[in-house]
Design a protein around this nucleic acid. Structure first.
Lengths: 127, 127
DNA sequence: ACAACATTTGAACAACTGTTCAAGTGTTAT
DNA sequence: ATAACACTTGAACAGTTGTTCAAATGTTGT
């Protein structure tokens, strides 16, 4: 990381905030590279999907193979209603797809971005 | 993905649920590979950190360079109190580190897992 | 048409989350 | 010691979230 105590040549070296409270140089540069509002919002929405135990479990199950609502519910020891609600959320976020097969509805991961994200998270935790 | 309509040899081919409601084969296999409860919980907790706009913005700012609370607050147009609360959450999750420097407290990303996760998310959205 | 089953849906509820506000702590300079 | 500033903290509040329950929809076999 950079050494904040050695300001770039030409910058005033006061590390204090306030009157020039904000370090104009720093905030201007940082803001310039900040992705735009909408993108950041969508990104947070995406991660929100992974931010619930039940949904993460569902995604891991589907990572192995596609499953019907009934099987997912049984696997996790939850009601089909609860699972269905979560699947709708995941479906809206385009993280899972589904198809009807007789009485059942089979859900599957939408693409392999999803599994990559799961794996990267696990990697971080197990480091 | 696998073709669920062609069951492995030896398995009964009834796609129906119920009496054998749950597809024992399938759920048993899926459950076997499911990471254990605690790990999944921690994973969800990790992603929860990225599941809020404000926190994502803070992380992106820190991705560019370390900053004090005051600068972050100014950059995002929020109060230092709100930012401080979020920084505490990120600090508890070990996603950021901090050090005191005079009156200021400088925050920085804890490691580059964080930036990798942010990048992967962006990649998914911008696909 | 009917019964049985798999799934979805909506309302209701408790639990959780993020921001605000006011008061607190810690640091520096006078 | 005092004042000024940077930051933190706790309580309170509104808004959001996940599960439950009951009722509805869709599909299949008789």
């Amino acid at each position: 990381m950079e050494n904040r105590t050695v300001p770039p040549a030409g910058a005033e070296d006061a590390p204090a905030c306030e009157a020039f409270c904000v370090h104009d140089e720093i905030t201007r540069r940082a803001l310039q590279k900040l992705p735009e509002e909408n993108l950041l919002f969508d990104l947070a929405e995406l991660y929100k999907m992974f931010g619930d135990s039940t949904r993460v479990k569902i995604l891991f199950l589907l990572f192995e193979e596609e499953m019907c609502v009934c099987d997912i519910a049984e696997s996790l020891g939850m009601t089909t209603s609860a699972i269905s609600h979560q699947l709708r959320i995941l479906k809206n976020a385009k993280l899972v797809t589904y198809r009807r097969e007789g009485k059942s509805v089979i859900y599957a991961l939408a693409d392999d971005h999803v599994s990559k994200i799961l794996e990267l998270g696990l990697e971080h935790i197990c480091e």
